[in-house]
Simulated assay, not measured.
Amino acid sequence: MTAARIRIAPSVLNADFGRLTEEVLALEAAGADAIHWDVMDGRFVPNLTIGPDVIASVRPHTSLPFEAHLMVDEPAGSLHRWVEAGCALVTVHAEACTHLHRTLGAIADLDARVGVALNPGTPPQAVSQVLGLLDHVLVMTVNPGYGGQRYLAEMEAKTSHLRRELDRSDRTIRLEVDGGISAETIMRARGAGARSFVAGSAIIRHPDGYTAGIAELRQAAGEGTSAPEDVAAA
């Protein structure tokens, strides 16, 4: 059986926000599979980034899927804003939702793909009771809030646990990792079971440009070897 292609979703957190559309177009040309928008509210995490109007302004200029990673407290009241901005996938943090099941159901009601993210200190069992609602699980391999952090290898055990649990599910649920992904760490994350990778600095700050950065990640991940998961959907 032909192996599935891994999915690379560059984060634009460290891109040039003064020319954000051009940055996204450059990432598309470089071979990105999606654009990962790190949305931070200055409360759930100490950083403050962008709102839905910024994402909406870029949406008409690219065909790449957009994923909104909401690092915000109690995101339920604003979910529609991210879908209206053009995000096919909306991911909320389990730790940020008082009523996680209800919040995930609200994303599904908006006809968006449903994602949940787990901070490093959150056990994998936090998603066990909501698997029937999920399309996407995101394991944070850094503490969220800033780009350029060191990859936390101890999160590989959590990723492996989730890989086994997701494989037993009757749904196709993508497993993604985010934080410290580079040519030095991506194979470890893939070996733990991830097939989708958020990468920021390894692409945005690559000395030879975005195309080289994405190609280097694919090569380092051993793309073309066994990877029994479909990662094509947004």
Results as ranks from 00 to 15, higher is better:
residue 86 G to P: 10
residue 86 G to Q: 01
residue 86 G to I: 04
residue 87 C to Y: 01
residue 88 A to R: 13
residue 88 A to M: 07
residue 92 V to A: 02
residue 92 V to P: 05
residue 93 H to E: 05
residue 95 E to T: 08
residue 98 T to M: 08
residue 99 H to P: 08
residue 101 H to P: 00
residue 101 H to M: 12
residue 103 T to E: 13
residue 105 G to V: 08
residue 107 I to C: 10
residue 108 A to K: 14
residue 109 D to P: 10
residue 109 D to K: 14
residue 109 D to L: 11
residue 112 A to L: 04
residue 114 V to Y: 08
residue 116 V to M: 13
residue 116 V to R: 08
residue 117 A to N: 04
residue 117 A to R: 02
residue 119 N to F: 02
residue 120 P to W: 00
residue 120 P to K: 05
residue 122 T to S: 09
residue 123 P to L: 01
residue 123 P to S: 03
residue 123 P to C: 00
residue 124 P to A: 10
residue 124 P to N: 02
residue 124 P to Q: 01
residue 125 Q to C: 11
residue 125 Q to F: 04
residue 125 Q to R: 12
residue 127 V to G: 03
residue 130 V to W: 07
residue 134 L to I: 09
residue 137 V to R: 05
residue 139 V to M: 09
residue 140 M to A: 07
residue 142 V to T: 12
residue 142 V to I: 14
residue 145 G to Q: 08
residue 145 G to M: 09
residue 148 G to N: 06
residue 148 G to C: 00
residue 150 R to S: 13
residue 152 L to M: 15
residue 153 A to D: 12
residue 153 A to L: 07
residue 153 A to Y: 09
residue 155 M to A: 09
residue 158 K to I: 05
residue 158 K to S: 10
residue 160 S to Q: 11
residue 161 H to N: 11
residue 162 L to H: 03
residue 162 L to Q: 02
residue 162 L to E: 00
residue 163 R to S: 12
residue 163 R to E: 06
residue 164 R to E: 13
residue 167 D to E: 14
residue 168 R to F: 13
residue 170 D to I: 02
residue 174 R to I: 13
residue 174 R to H: 11
residue 174 R to F: 05
residue 175 L to R: 07
residue 177 V to T: 14
residue 177 V to L: 10
residue 178 D to T: 02
residue 184 E to Y: 00
residue 184 E to R: 14
residue 186 I to F: 08
residue 186 I to K: 12
residue 191 G to F: 07
residue 192 A to R: 01
residue 194 A to P: 10
residue 195 R to K: 11
residue 195 R to L: 09
residue 196 S to I: 04
residue 197 F to W: 01
residue 198 V to Y: 07
residue 200 G to C: 03
residue 200 G to E: 04
residue 205 R to N: 14
residue 205 R to S: 12
residue 205 R to M: 06
residue 206 H to A: 08
